[in-house]
């Protein structure tokens, strides 16, 4: 039942060409910087510096990756980040999912006020210095806990999870459980959570990625380098260039400069790899999470 007139069909063909050209260009713009870092990490730094590396590695070398092993602070940072991510994600899930479930219940007295209590913090806060002073008053400055506990409430995530519970857990279920003498806590743990694997995995991933990538709290609240997460170590290597500043001149300095350059590529790869490996498997869930959030608006 094709009723299109030829002119429209030509226009559609043109649209198709423009569309796919655009899509391919976007793919190149997004991928190439990342691809370049990968090939540069396997190349001779002088070939990279003189512009000979464009599409594949030149002067193949693994020196950048060998260099990684000489920097114990990278591995310490790695370990710290893994611990912060694991503990931070566990705390974040526990705190936010339970709050979200309570707020999703229509029979919660004071629901409006409590929702406002949460949402207000999205738009207004004490600011940097008062928050800093508070953390110090609680003796959390420069401790492990400051990285995982004080800022674990994520109101946006609570809203998304609340919407999920409202649409995904039928109120009849709670009524039936109540008749059987089941309390709120048992219902939450034994019924709600097992039915909410989709939202749990979405929030877990949001938390894990956020923890892995964040550096702000570490910059503000940590002083002891032994507690530094990977991102702060990366900052020293990639941004403040502490390696290069320490160098002198001469042949030894040349070699050191070469290695410092290589290290910048390889450290990017090693620090980003875990998330990139995880990402394709969880992308589906991420989409779902945003869709759940979209239902609200």
């Amino acid at each position: 039942m094709e009723l299109r007139i030829p002119k429209t069909r030509n226009n559609d063909r043109l649209l198709e060409i423009v569309l796919y050209t655009w899509a391919v260009l976007v793919l190149i713009v997004v991928m190439y910087p990342l691809f370049f870092i990968v090939i540069a990490s396997f190349s001779d730094p002088s070939a990279v510096g003189s512009g000979q590396v464009w599409l594949y590695p030149k002067g193949f070398t693994l020196d950048g990756y060998k260099e990684l092993f000489k920097h114990s602070n990278i591995w310490l940072g790695y370990r710290n980040t893994i611990v912060y991510t694991a503990v931070g994600t566990a705390i974040g899930l526990a705190v936010n999912l339970s709050a979200a479930y309570a707020l999703s219940r229509k029979d919660l007295v004071g629901r409006r006020f409590l929702s406002l209590f949460f949402i207000f913090t999205m738009f207004f806060n004490g600011g940097l210095v008062p928050t800093f002073l508070t953390i110090r008053d609680f003796h959390l400055y420069d401790t492990f806990w400051v990285m995982v506990l004080p800022f674990s409430v994520a109101v946006f995530d609570i809203i998304v999870a609340r919407t999920f519970f409202q649409t995904g857990i039928p109120p009849e279920l709670w009524e039936a459980a109540q008749v059987d003498g089941c309390g709120n806590l048992r219902f939450y743990v034994q019924m709600v959570l097992p039915l909410s694997k989709a939202i749990i995995s979405v929030l877990a991933l949001w938390f894990a990625v956020g923890q892995w990538n964040s550096y702000f709290n570490a910059l503000i609240y940590l002083h002891n380098p032994d507690l530094y997460p990977l991102q702060l170590v990366l900052r020293e290597i990639l941004v403040t260039n502490q390696m290069q500043n320490a160098l002198g001149t001469g042949e030894a300095a040349q070699i050191a400069l070469r290695l410092a350059n290589l290290l910048r590529y390889s450290v990017i790869i090693v620090a980003t790899l875990p998330i990139m490996c995880l990402y394709p498997f969880v992308q589906k869930h991420f989409n779902k999470g945003v869709m759940i959030g979209a239902v609200k608006s």
């Binding site: 526990a94 705190v95 936010n96 339970s98 709050a99 479930y101 309570a102 707020l103 409590l114 209590f117 949460f118 913090t121 806060n125 004490g126 928050t131 508070t134 953390i135 609680f138 506990l149 004080p150 800022f151 674990s152 409430v153 609570i158 709120n184 806590l185 939450y188």
Partner: peptide
């Protein structure tokens, strides 16, 4: 269930 989140917000926000 609300207690942990509310406590954290009261203390740190």
């Amino acid at each position: 269930l609300l207690l942990p989140a509310v406590t954290l917000l009261l203390c740190f926000v």
